[in-house]
Design a binder for these strands. Structure first.
Lengths: 197, 197
DNA sequence: CGAAAAATCTACCGATCGGTTAGGAGCGTG
DNA sequence: CACGCTCCTAACCGATCGGTAGATTTTTCG
């Protein structure tokens, strides 16, 4: 058993931190470029310049590496979006959310592919509605701020708009010249009427 | 070389047809239930009640089986949708398209998962915009029929609406009680204003 | 019936998968 | 110096992958 301390509360070594970060980064690259199946232990180890066993010294299993990479990409995303959205007033937060989300995903295409790949792969236990729940709450709040009609299903609106965001980003992944900013504004124009009574 | 005639123009045996159909069906089930990686030759063969070698007698490679399954699911989808859409007049065809697409995907969840899985897996060579091009053309035609403003980007509208369709279906896959029909109507309500001058 | 063709089986191949084991540098500390 | 800890390598494991070769059964048809 050459396994790492798992939930140890002790602080990590500097080298350990650096290695983990590096492994997460190369894993994001691999999953983004070659899909979940393409991110084998051997591939991860090779890109990091170490051996498979060394990778498994820092993480208990391969899935743990991929999960850590997914978590990292997701955390960076929500932190970025949350910061932008807070600056807007309630009525325009859904628009700010869409703009910020599309913008972030365009600036970090690797993270985008990583998140999408993870979404597709972990079958079942992830709810699409849960992914867009923050957006659903912003939509509810905006409707309330604009005076009523909070009866319309914010969950469905959020799911649809979220799907639109994903589609815009996916298109940009295929065609780097695609004008995602214009597409985001178009999506916002479609969303806006549903926010007013 | 125990390989099948590949592009032979000759007619196929009844058994061959039945086997191919069966193999395509079990492959759709497998890909839908366990993802692309879960559809191994051994798994396909087991579900069909034959051996791996027998599978490779009817198809040259494993990928050929999966591609055939994808093609089958896709063909069934477009045939279904096309039939419904033609019955509507130009101005309301986009709405009919959305309704029909969501309805078909709900009635054939396996096909849905198969298509999504294939979409994610074949990296790069498939353009999201191409997938929704038929919808983009319906949107353009509807705008023309309603009198002008064909300047708005139909491609982007189609991509956004298409993403909304995918998201609705994905949510229904996770929550079977989800009201996809209502969601489709909501999506249509968001689409409609963009079709008029 | 008997032979050709179609369909399938058993058995194997090399490659790769995630993971394990044992050990050995390098380094700071008693 | 010797001990202990961190970080890593070389070698290996059993399982599974897609695919192949050749024998064998089943079907078709003159």
């Amino acid at each position: 058993m050459t396994r790492r301390r798992e939930g140890a509360t002790g602080e990590l070594t500097l080298i350990e931190r650096a290695r983990r970060t590096q492994l997460i980064e190369v894993t994001i690259e691999l999953v983004a470029d070659r899909g979940y199946g393409g991110a084998s232990l051997a591939a991860i180890a090779e890109r990091a310049g170490i051996t498979k066993a060394a990778v498994l010294y820092h993480f208990p299993t391969k899935d743990a590496v991929v999960r850590a990479a997914h978590k990292h990409a997701l955390a960076a995303l929500v932190a970025d979006v949350a910061g932008t959205v807070e600056a807007a007033d309630a009525a325009s937060r859904p628009a700010a959310y869409v703009r910020s989300m599309v913008g972030h995903l365009r600036e970090h295409p690797r993270h985008t592919r990583m998140i999408i790949e993870a979404m597709v792969h972990d079958d079942g236990d992830s709810d699409p509605a849960a992914r867009w729940r923050p957006l659903a709450e912003l939509i509810s709040a905006a409707r309330a701020a604009r005076g009523g009609n909070g009866d319309t299903d914010a969950r469905t609106t959020a799911i649809i708009v979220g799907g639109g965001i994903d589609a815009i980003v996916a298109e940009q992944l295929h065609d780097p010249d695609y004008d995602t900013a214009a597409a985001a504004e178009h999506l916002i124009e479609m969303l806006d009427p549903t926010l007013s009574p």
